[in-house]
Design a protein around this nucleic acid. Structure first.
Lengths: 165, 165
DNA sequence: TTTTCCTATGATATATTATAACATTACTCG
DNA sequence: CGAGTAATGTTATAATATATCATAGGAAAA
């Protein structure tokens, strides 16, 4: 009756300041160690992603860059996103054309996403067993997987538990 | 050295005329039984999809419609695709913005795709065990799946076996 | 039969997502 | 300094998708 969407404050997946800082520090260190340039635009885009558990579209990111004083054009946003995705700091959610910060930055893996239709929150699992299952199944058919897109849409535990509708 | 791509003739996933006809007959019957209108545009689009194991983009389908004498605009193609997808006759491959005929038309399910980077062929598996694995894993986290997008990119058995590169 | 209603299609415009191509800057390294 | 590379700026356009309103066509009600 009151609200359609669960507010960010109530979310199970909420991240506190500590984990924000932690993710940023992790990728800063990773970049130092691997000779990667975490330029201002790239860093800013990663901040945006960390700050938005629902993920962000490329053009929303472009807007945010402009609000932050960057006078950017679309390629700037896509280039920053390419950098973040290539280096395992972010992922693209293919079924939503949306980008999210990686919860395990720097570890190259095939993520599994759960996208809540109610609160729009995107959460990533590190389901190694899941990856293994899929690999095994498909390997039986002789298919060699290089990358897997696994995205589940449905209702997250918070929204399911909040006795609405 | 000779060819980069495996030709359609050599493909393990090749469908013969018999199975084409079969798929069409299946959806014709399904539509009759469920009061669905398999109009000329919709039928034609389904034919295109049956005929292209690599899948087709919406605008490619639009081109084909025009070549077939339909004077169509983009919404016509998307409407036909919506109809086919909603009724389980086709799927969208999200990671490629591409549509494919369903190999089990009419059975509503969450398909698993294998997309070969070499021959571009898209094949669908009916991996119920796979679905089950994913459901179980995510259910543990309290997430209720309504739909799952599972798309593996890699090298198909035909291309892997054809001793190239 | 005429009217009504519903479904599908036609038609126009525009929104959204993404990239190509070339110019410029900025930093490193020799 | 000068050359080379990586990043960014800039302009234009490609590719994908939808909103909106108009029209047609057939089935069902009156």
């Amino acid at each position: 009756m009151t609200e359609k969407k669960v507010s960010a404050r109530d979310c199970l997946f909420k991240r506190d300041e500590g984990s924000f800082k932690n993710s940023m520090e992790i990728i800063e260190q990773y970049c130092r160690e691997h000779g990667l340039q975490l330029t201002p635009v790239r860093k800013k885009v990663f901040e945006f992603l960390l700050d938005e558990p629902r993920g962000l579209g490329a053009y929303k990111i472009l807007d945010l860059l402009r609000l932050s004083g960057f006078n950017s054009q679309p390629p700037a946003a896509y280039r920053a996103l390419d950098f973040l995705v290539e280096n395992g700091f972010a992922h693209k959610v293919e079924s939503q054309n949306l980008f999210v910060a990686c919860t395990k930055p720097g570890s190259h893996h095939s993520p599994v996403f759960m996208i809540c239709k109610k609160c729009d929150r995107v959460s990533e699992t590190q389901s190694t067993s899941l990856d293994a299952n899929i690999s095994d199944s498909l390997r039986l058919s002789g298919f060699e997987i290089e990358h897997a897109v696994i995205e589940a849409e449905g209702i997250c535990s918070v929204c399911a538990g909040s006795g609405s509708s």
